[in-house]
Amino acid sequence: MTRSLSLGYSPCPNDTFIFDALVHRRIPLCDLVFHERLEDVETLNALAMRAVLDLTKVSYHAFGHLRQNYALLRSGGALGRGCGPLVVAARPLDMEQLRHQKIAIPGAMTTANLLLQLYGEGFERVVPIPFDRIMTAVAGGEFAAGVIIHESRFTYRQHGLHQVLDLGQWWEATTGQPIPLGGILVKRSLGSRLIAEIDASLRRSIEFAFAHPEASRPYIKAHAQELSDAVIDSHIGLYVNKFSLDLGDEGLAAVAALLTRAEQRGLIPPCDLPLIETPVTAP
């Protein structure tokens, strides 16, 4: 019997690279069929809040609000070092100068915003706008600063912007751990057996992508904001790594640390359910 599952992820190169083999059936999937929906991360967060999708990429900030209905998969996420969101401005500033200024963020439930709120006492004057508008809005003087994500970290200088703070670097220096950006969630109601099968399929998709990098390139280019091969390769190289194959103990510890800090600051509700419901080795 074929099992049809709804799947959400972003059009960014790291996600299209990861999911290409899965949705185009380049790997054995038994009787699983995935119907993809590509949306920006904040739209995916909102869909997950309404439990619309069986399987979806979300920000780890959003996961903090979703743990009752969704569990985390070991594969497919974005977590690492040197890959965090950046605070940028049209002129050289420091974070204290931004304390009472308007800051553009790529969404209220993004990990970018969570990190911003965990820095110092947090920042109240944040305004969510689409991530691909932030650099232009900051360069045009609409905001004192903006928090940028995805491939924007490679192109912000072309907009005449200055880095104020690398929030990922700050997190690493503060905690010694890699920064959890986005994870792949699955509905707990699907049950641990099916969840394990999904997790194993996703890992195979990533392994295929690494082994056959050119196979996914047309799909990546069809959805990328930046079409330059150099930018696409830099993006994938930064956000797809060993933690994308398997979070492992180090990755899970980093996720737990982020959510614990957020709980302690009252930024997400507490939850006593386990982060994952899949075994280390899926069947």
Rank of each mutant, 00 (worst) to 15 (best):
V138E: 02
L86N: 03
R261I: 02
E172L: 09
G77M: 01
V280C: 12
S201V: 09
G122S: 05
L115T: 04
E96K: 10
S4I: 10
D166S: 09
G76F: 05
M109N: 04
A51T: 13
R204V: 10
L118R: 02
D20W: 13
I105D: 03
A224C: 13
V255I: 14
S205H: 12
E96M: 08
L227H: 07
P218K: 00
E197A: 14
V147S: 00
C12N: 14
E226A: 07
H162R: 09
D54K: 10
A282Q: 15
R37P: 04
P106Q: 13
L181D: 07
L73F: 02
Q97F: 03
D132T: 11
N241C: 11
E172S: 02
L259H: 12
N241Y: 14
R26C: 15
G176Y: 12
S234Q: 14
E36Y: 04
N69C: 03
E121A: 12
G8C: 04
I18W: 02
T136S: 07
I236F: 00
D40H: 01
D132A: 06
R133M: 13
R133F: 06
L273C: 05
P13D: 08
A230V: 08
L259K: 15
G248C: 05
L66N: 15
I103E: 01
V127P: 00
V280Q: 15
G8D: 07
V231M: 04
I195H: 15
D40F: 00
S192P: 15
A137P: 01
E96W: 08
S10H: 15
G120H: 10
E124F: 04
D246F: 06
D229A: 11
V126P: 00
H212L: 01
N45D: 13
D15V: 00
D31W: 06
M109I: 05
S6W: 13
